[in-house]
């Protein structure tokens, strides 16, 4: 297995016969290792879905080359190990959830023996009960459709899973379930390509993230790199320690000695700007050393949000 290699990928659309050409992807080059969870984030219309379309072999790029395990993305042997959940999932409305999964199980050329058991397991895995499996999909809510779509994408233990906004329309319990399932995939060595606007989901699942804007990959960062970026740290102390026992002036001096800056104080909370993880640790040590009973310390943005906000200006718009 060599993973996914993308070199100089470009794709342009024309809106109508005489319309102006619209650049969807421009010279995108990325290498995704087998077993890696790779996210792409960016504004609507950035080219993320076109990128997935090319990776799945649905769209023919104008220039560039994609190989998956050394083969073309539309190679049948690659499709046999691929799972896909589109952003707007459309199903044959006459099918039941069970029939839909059995249909895709058969299309994936998986052995008919044990199909029934595997479909039941797949329904259970995404939190759909047997009664829901017997219902026709025209009676499914948006969230149930997404759950069914994810079950379909995971049918037959694929080695590559392509997901476009998988948690779109899913209720909070479903979001948590999706996050857990995707994390399991990443742990099991499945290569996951995830398009999502939900930064928290991308951060939990993906090791690397591409920031896409106007068809270009502006930056590719490891999610762990967010630890080295400046952030605002919100510190809450028990009782009246902040502002009363330890006044603003003393807090500012403590922060300064730890390499941080007091941002503002609104007892029982204070907000500090810290440069990185080390500065955050020094600040907390200094506060505790000065007798502040720190009850909670939370960054205002997640690591991925920090990366997103610190990315080149045009990619963060």
């Amino acid at each position: 297995m060599t993973g996914i290699q993308i070199e100089g990928l470009s794709k342009t659309y024309r809106r109508g016969l005489l319309g102006e050409p619209v650049r969807a992807l421009a010279d995108v080059s990325v290498s995704i290792a087998p077993g890696e969870a790779f996210g792409s984030i960016g504004p609507n219309g950035a080219g993320k879905t076109t990128f997935l379309g090319c990776l799945l072999g649905f769209l023919r790029p104008d220039a560039g080359r994609i190989t998956i395990d050394g083969r073309a993305p539309d190679d049948i042997t690659i499709r046999a190990v691929t799972g896909y959940l589109p952003e707007r999932l459309v199903l044959d409305r006459w099918m039941s959830g069970y029939q839909f999964l059995a249909y895709h199980h058969a299309l994936a050329r998986l052995p008919a023996d044990g199909r029934e058991a595997e479909v039941e397991r797949a329904l259970e895995r995404v939190g759909l009960d047997p009664e829901a499996g017997r219902r026709t999909v025209r009676r499914y809510s948006r969230g149930m459709l997404q759950r069914l779509g994810l079950a379909q994408a995971l049918m037959g233990r694929p080695r590559y899973v392509f997901l476009d906004e998988p948690a779109s329309g899913v209720d909070p319990a479903g979001v948590v379930l999706f996050r857990r399932l995707l994390s399991e995939l990443a742990r099991d060595g499945v290569t996951v390509i995830l398009n999502s606007h939900q930064l928290a989901q991308v951060e939990r699942v993906c090791g690397r993230v591409a920031f896409v804007k106007a068809g270009r990959v502006e930056a590719i960062e490891t999610v762990a790199a967010g630890a080295g970026h400046a952030r605002v740290l919100r510190v809450r102390a028990a009782g009246d320690a902040l502002g009363t026992r330890v006044p603003r002036e003393q807090l500012a001096v403590l922060a300064s000695s730890a390499g941080a800056t007091l941002h503002d104080l609104a007892p029982p909370e204070a907000r500090f700007t810290v440069a990185d993880d080390d500065a955050a640790a020094r600040l907390l040590q200094a506060l505790i050393g000065a007798g502040v009973p720190v009850a909670e310390a939370t960054p205002e943005e997640s690591r991925l949000e920090r990366l997103f906000l610190d990315a080149p200006e045009e990619s963060a718009s």
């Binding site: 046999a80 589109p86 459309v90 895709h104 299309l107």
Partner: peptide, 14 residues
């Protein structure tokens, strides 16, 4: 037109 074909083509179907 319904979009069902996309899911079919994601499978090993020529």
């Amino acid at each position: 037109s319904s979009g069902v074909l996309q899911l079919i083509y994601a499978r090993p179907v020529r």
